[in-house]
Nucleic acid binder design. Structure first.
Lengths: 343, 343
DNA sequence: GGCGACGAGTGAATTGTTTCAATGAAATTG
DNA sequence: CAATTTCATTGAAACAATTCACTCGTCGCC
């Protein structure tokens, strides 16, 4: 392996000069610089970031930990964050916790070992214990899709209570009086907030909380939606609408309902969450609560970059909360009897 | 920041002993080990991988570079590869080249700087120049979704010629005599192979090559599909079927055709490629050529691990080629006049 | 009791880079 | 022309770990 010393020898200069050519070329004379650059090219020298980081004390990599890269929502977040980081000359290491607190812990430990410059994460652990533990390493972090607890760092999130209200308010306005909530794993704050929003919408419509039939699932993917729909079909008093914690689940629900001959939206309305690209292309285009995924990723990265750039103390932690938006499509088209009493 | 020396002082031992506790605990006496472990826990010591790697010469990270994480196909590949690597105690750094040769070069340079243990990549550069250049660093790599040129390394791919034949053979058997190929960027080998397969299927059916109307696109995403469909609708002699280079494009085509009132499959049949999860949930469930994405990711990682484990020279490069499989759904249901002459 | 073997622990060398005080030469100034 | 400033370059220390040749007891055995 070629090291800086080999380049120095080849160019007939000291290692310090080679380092200067790489890191601050303006300090080096015109012709020496060209000689060194030629030597680098000829030998195919690539500098060792580990040696560099050991000396300078920090790397040029950001850690990004999301719940599930199988969900296009998080892919959008990750891409936007990566673009923003790249603009600032930083690389991003993307990892997936699979909504497991233990995997989250494992990856955060990896980030700490790597001495990443900063971390963007969507916590899987509802208790906030792993995040708190990570905070002790002194590595700056920004919470994504989750409001920060206690102001230990910045956060960018979307108002999930408002989102839940938007979704269920839309359904009650269309006359639905029994609504299922396919909720995903209840240890996630997002899930709990969306339920709170849903209940608020029911209350506002003067409907009791028992009208919300909760169907929790282990995961947040299409398979979970299929499974939940089977359970839904088995209920004695079948609801007339389903609110799904995300679009993957909604697509799974849609598939199973379709296979069972249940008409959407006539027999069962569906509202999803996230408004992923595939929601619009579904068998029945999905009504969904749109989250500004790209904006969230970009803002999170920018907040982190700001914190990194600011001389110590100059940065003040902020909690940014974005607003969701309801996108109405065919899966929840207003039924006959809308705005009327019970059907 | 706590370093190994602090731990050593706290535990009243030498730094060498602390290192042994971490890396080969069996060499250390019972009670010293416990003392050291306690010190590590109390101080919250996290070892610095950069210092470690500098000394031992290689990291415990694999680089993975795919064309587009927005495509669920590559997400599946990446997840499977990551699982396999994780089983062997290696982390994975996932990056996206966006099908750009320059971004590919950039990320490969990043991998080289990081001294990653090995690399899995789907080349974006059709010429193979960037891969060849990367080969000079002496970092083992495995090509994914692309057969290796010249046996410089292992590869895992799917027979794209066979896939193209499967798709177009299915369409000609259903009586289609004018078929569009929405192909994506032609510098990708996969795209060219699928076209070759498509032409082979036409030849086999006794149809001239001019029956394949090629509609290239810049990218391989849903937007590209929508755009291509607009062009398709503007053609003077409109084809009766479309073969799309991947499912994202197919979904875009489907959306635009639907919006234009073109019936699928009656007025236009569609066959996609990859069989991503969302293909089955589309407005009209998509016929698609299924690629074993997870198997490909897993196999690629395993080949790389084998190469890393094998004592130098013990490894022989292999080119694994998997077979695709046609999954027929509603978007290509057999039309009247199937197996007959021209319509 | 002396000798060898063994186990546990030490401490210095090593890894590849950056950084900075020091050096030397050339240019500028009074 | 001496003194000062500027500029390019050098060489060694520092970074935080691993590794390995050694040391120091202790034990067993003849």
């Amino acid at each position: 392996m070629i090291v800086i010393k080999d380049v120095a020898r080849r160019a007939g200069v000291s290692v310090g000069t080679v380092s200067n050519v790489i890191n601050s070329p303006e300090r080096v004379g015109e012709d020496t610089r060209r000689r060194v650059e030629a030597a680098i090219a000829e030998l195919g020298y690539v500098r060792n970031v580990h040696a560099r980081q050991l000396r300078v004390g920090h790397s040029r990599i950001l850690g990004l930990l999301v719940l599930d890269m199988g969900n296009p929502f998080f892919v959008d977040v990750a891409r936007a964050a990566e673009r923003a980081a790249h603009r600032a000359g930083l690389g991003v290491m993307v990892c997936t916790s699979n909504q497991s607190a233990s995997e989250e812990e494992e990856y955060l430990a990896l980030f700490a070992e790597q001495r990443v410059r900063g971390v963007l994460l969507t916590p899987a652990d509802g208790s906030g214990r792993t995040v708190e533990a990570f905070g002790r390493h002194g590595i700056p972090f920004v919470l994504v899709d989750r409001v920060g607890a206690g102001g230990a760092g910045c956060s960018v999130s979307v108002d999930d209570v408002a989102g839940g209200t938007l979704a269920v308010g839309h359904l009650t306005a269309a006359g639905h009086r029994r609504i299922a909530y396919v909720s995903g794993p209840p240890h996630l704050q997002q899930i709990r907030d969306r339920r709170a929003g849903a209940l608020a919408a029911l209350a506002e419509a003067g409907i009791g909380a028992e009208a919300l039939i909760e169907l929790p699932t282990e995961t947040l993917d299409v398979a979970a939606g299929r499974d939940a729909a089977s359970r839904l079909l088995g209920l004695s008093q079948r609801p007339t609408a389903v609110f799904c914690a995300n679009d993957l689940i909604a697509l799974g629900v849609l598939q199973t309902l379709f296979a069972a001959g249940v008409g959407v939206p006539q027999d069962m309305a569906i509202v999803g969450y996230d408004d992923i690209e595939f929601a619009a292309a579904a068998a029945v285009p999905l009504t969904s609560v749109r989250q500004p995924a790209a904006a969230m990723g970009r803002l999170a990265a920018e907040l982190l970059l700001e914190e990194l750039a600011g001389e110590s103390g100059a940065h003040e932690h902020r909690q940014v909360v974005l607003q969701p938006e309801l996108v109405v499509r065919r899966s929840s088209l207003v039924r006959r009897g809308a705005n009327g009493g019970p059907l």
